[in-house]
């Protein structure tokens, strides 16, 4: 499938369908300089869509605000597309098409038809958010926004009470 033909409606459909984490007990993996986790996620409807939920945290001292988590759609032909990505506040961001700069604030990248059509990075558009300040909180926002069930660590459950009640 060529991503050039993907529409905003289809991206919304992918983000909005109910999903389930298949391997919630996957362990953190330490890579040089950062920690990462990749979860397998499947759509609960009959679409058969598969996804990857990924989290990344910079481990260097003073870089706690350098984190990201996102949802990647794994197309059946082996291609993949990052649908959304929740970033920390460690760096500024620039929306290239709009020529709009975001400062040192948490921001959410989102795949858009506009950026795909313009031959830019599909997830090149981002908008500011104050809904989270840490990776843990960002993951909670991500699973809520993308309707992902099954990620139920003790920590997440505890924070869910704080965030959503």
């Amino acid at each position: 499938m060529a991503f050039e033909s993907i529409t905003d409606e289809f991206i919304e459909e992918l983000i909005g369908c109910r999903k389930m984490v298949i391997n919630p007990k996957t362990r953190d993996v330490n890579k040089p300089g950062h920690k990462q986790v990749n979860y397998i996620v499947k759509a609960l409807d009959d679409s058969g869509h598969k996804f990857e939920l990924f989290t990344r945290q910079n481990l260097a001292e003073g870089m706690e605000d350098d984190f990201s988590c996102g949802l990647r759609w794994l197309a059946s032909n082996g291609e993949s597309l990052i649908l959304c990505r929740y970033n920390g506040s460690s760096h500024p961001h620039r929306n290239k098409i709009e020529n709009q700069a975001l400062g040192l604030i948490c921001h959410i990248h989102r795949a858009t038809e506009r950026y795909i059509t313009a031959n830019q990075k599909p997830d090149g558009f981002a908008y500011e958010t104050d809904n989270y300040q840490s990776l843990q909180e960002a993951v909670l926002c991500l699973v809520r926004d993308c309707r992902i069930d099954g990620l139920l660590t003790d920590t997440v459950e505890t924070n869910q009470i704080d965030l959503f009640t």
């Binding site: 300089g33 990462q36 910079n58 350098d66 460690s90 290239k96 990075k121």
Partner: peptide, 27 residues
């Protein structure tokens, strides 16, 4: 994707200025 390169300076003994990406690029 529009995210700015992360470039940092750490001052080391002997007046050395270590320019570093603090591991962000690989992440």
């Amino acid at each position: 994707d529009g995210d700015q390169y992360q470039l940092y300076i750490k001052v080391l003994p002997g007046g050395i200025l270590r320019l570093t990406d603090m591991g962000h690029t690989l992440m």
